[in-house]
Design a binder for these strands. Structure first.
Lengths: 159, 159, 159
DNA sequence: GACGTTCTAGAATATTCGCAA
DNA sequence: CTTGCGAATATTCTAGAACGT
């Protein structure tokens, strides 16, 4: 269960919604897959922000949408304009993530949200020590080992 | 015999009452099975709280009802609105438990109330170490960092 | 400047809005100062949640409003009903904070948002152990020492 | 002592603002 | 100048804790 904005699945709400929007033919005027299916396009950011976003999120700001994309590791694809011939539509944008590809919805679960320092550091620091498994507290539903921590605290406080 | 509320069955009163409410056709306007029978819906939480709850419990607060649901391991199901077609009713909610399914009342006895992991386990373990005082977090009534340690441990043990 | 919610003042948006709501005569039917000006009352929580909240916040849930109040250190005031004479309005609530008092708007800036115990307790507890400095997690801006705990745990688990 | 009710806090995601690479 | 990110607040779902029956 993913709280916060309300997750009910392994995939956060945000990702599910973006996927649905890109897939939905009714919104293809605003957001759709790119030609090669490796990224998605927002065709008119202003219209998309004002018309589509508030139906699915609690805001109507393109900047907030982009911030979320970045949080999940999406990157804007810089479209090189060959010469001046190309008339790019004003306000369009292309965004990409290696696990966000047309026809491969199962990859969504691999997209991880980047969080800021606290949890990241803790987890990052401890993940390198996966040899610490196997400490169940009797009665607990999860992995747990208070006794050991008592020893730790004692070690710290009365060295 | 299950104490607490003075039940006479193996299933706690709370679960029996929720089951009865979901089944009862007369209250289907407020609470009913979902279409697939895998969860139940509260259609209008405020009406449900004010009209139905006090008839069966000692309160009329949706929050207390939800707290009980969570205590028994129910989870809220996030309903994703695909597109704008779906007209979700205001203030509705869907709740689910793997042993709460339409037509399978016998599963109810498998639903267990969760006890507080923290106090139970930590206190048991720490009582043998009464020399650890002085690690009180100001404002805390107990040793100071149970939750955080749990977080750390969870990070270690369930990567 | 307080980011998040987009404040432009020293007082977070939430506090400013609550203050304005309590002061505003037009919303006194739903939220107003208590008689002594030491707290504020929400007279009908469900009406307040559905009618007032969405006009000022991005939600219409009383629970979210209460979560914010608690985050800022407000407490619910338990109203003792003297005998059976007092007819308390159904679904009302009184909330109080030592720096939220009628006529003293300047106190608002003293109300601080509580952050997750995680950092608070860690810092509070470990500041008394300044000999543990030097254990900064790279990228972290605060006191922190996962590495030491890992070392300790490893030392205990694999002696 | 397990269960029920209430108030508060934890934890993850969401939204906003501003800055810097 | 633009993209991406840090950090603070906001919203949601779940759990902790205290008290009562």
């Amino acid at each position: 269960m993913k709280p916060g904005g309300g997750g009910g699945a392994a995939v956060p709400h945000f990702l599910s919604k973006v996927w649905a929007l890109v897939e939905d033919p009714q919104t293809n005027e605003f957001i759709c897959w790119s030609a090669d299916g490796q990224s998605f396009n927002v065709l008119d950011e202003e219209s998309f922000a004002k018309k589509i976003l508030p139906k699915h999120f609690k805001h109507n700001n393109m900047a907030s949408f982009v911030r979320q994309l970045n949080s999940y590791g999406f990157h804007k694809v810089i479209q090189y304009e060959s010469g001046s011939a190309k008339q790019e539509r004003y306000g369009s944008g292309k965004y990409q993530h290696p696990c966000f590809k047309k026809g491969q919805e199962e990859l969504l679960s691999k997209i991880k949200r980047k969080v800021s320092n606290l949890s990241v550091c803790l987890q990052a620091s401890f993940q390198a020590h996966s040899d610490l498994k196997g400490f169940m507290c009797p009665g607990a539903h999860q992995f747990f080992f208070p006794t050991i921590l008592v020893s730790i605290i004692k070690g710290i406080t009365s060295p």
